[in-house]
């Protein structure tokens, strides 16, 4: 497979200096990874391994201590690139705006005419199953619905690269599977490259074309697994025997690392 490279991480590393002491924490890397245009890439790893940092590096929210991040051939280097949408783990709805205004927030700044904006927002509302809630406020919605608002807000901008940081972390299992189906549908419709961070191995195994497995901190890529799923797929592939094999292989790679990070957490507390 020789698809176009969409995002490239070359020798990317990140260190933090702690505010209260002078020691430097090596959080991530070095990481080398290329995301192909239009693929669905998932990252799994033990907690605290720097998964979210990796996402923030690609989003331009933080800059790398070493190495470089490129999006569509241009270096990011702490600049926030256009065409990238991010869905965060926490609820990022603006509580003072209606659902419609929340979804419209980014569009309002992009110089689009009112008809086009309204049309995009209406379609996103319908697609995310939020019809009838357009004029409600986030506080009146459940956690799952609020997360769908955030996904809709990202989608209306038509990003070419969508970064998702454990977007379903706060949801129950059934809702997560259904949201996974929705995500696959959106991915196929939009043609965007998707980079998903998750701690749920089954979620990664079901959704992604390729899965990166990360080590305990400092996070490095231990393994990249090709799932080989067809583009047309949904949550029913959990019945496929290969689904079990992939999940098992992920756990084999991760078990030792997770124990390491638990041990580190135990020692430091």
């Amino acid at each position: 497979m020789t698809a176009e490279v969409h995002v490239a991480l070359r020798g990317v590393g990140k260190s933090f200096s702690r505010a209260e002491s002078s020691d430097v924490v090596h959080a991530l890397g070095p990481i080398d990874l290329e995301l192909r245009k239009g693929e669905f890439f998932a990252v799994v790893g033990p907690s605290g391994c720097g998964k979210s940092t990796m996402l923030e590096l690609i989003a331009g929210l933080t800059s790398a201590t070493s190495g470089s991040v490129e999006f569509e051939g241009a270096s990011i280097a702490g600049r926030i690139p256009d065409g990238v949408g991010v869905v965060f783990q926490e609820d990022a709805c603006f509580p003072w705006m209606t659902i419609r205004d929340n979804i419209d927030f980014g569009l309002k700044r992009a110089k689009l005419d009112a008809v086009e904006r309204r049309d995009r927002v209406d379609r996103a509302i319908a697609m995310m199953g939020l019809s009838g809630f357009a004029e409600s406020y986030p506080a009146q919605l459940s956690g799952g619905m609020r997360q769908r608002v955030c996904i809709a807000r990202t989608l209306v901008m038509k990003p070419r690269l969508i970064l998702l940081d454990e977007p379903f972390g706060a949801l129950d299992q059934q809702t997560r599977l259904l949201m996974g189906d929705e995500l696959l549908k959106l991915w196929r419709l939009s043609g965007a490259t998707v980079f998903l961070i998750t701690h749920a191995l089954d979620e990664a195994a079901m959704l992604a074309d390729r899965i990166g497995v990360m080590s305990a901190r400092p996070g490095r890529l231990l393994d990249v697994i090709e799932t080989g799923w067809p583009k047309e797929r949904d949550s029913r592939i959990v019945e496929d025997p290969r689904f079990g094999e992939i999940t098992a292989r992920l756990w084999r790679s991760l078990r030792e690392e997770s124990m390491k990070s638990m041990g580190a957490a135990g020692a430091s507390s």
């Binding site: 991010v86 783990q89 990022a92 603006f94």
Partner: peptide, 28 residues
């Protein structure tokens, strides 16, 4: 909440816009 500010950053909001359309209403 930091995530609201990050949302603004991802949309490339300048400092003035960040104060006006996110910080101020969130802190109001």
């Amino acid at each position: 909440r930091v995530v609201l500010i990050k949302t603004g950053l991802v949309l490339n909001l300048g400092r003035g816009e960040m104060v006006r359309s996110i910080l101020f209403p969130a802190a109001l």
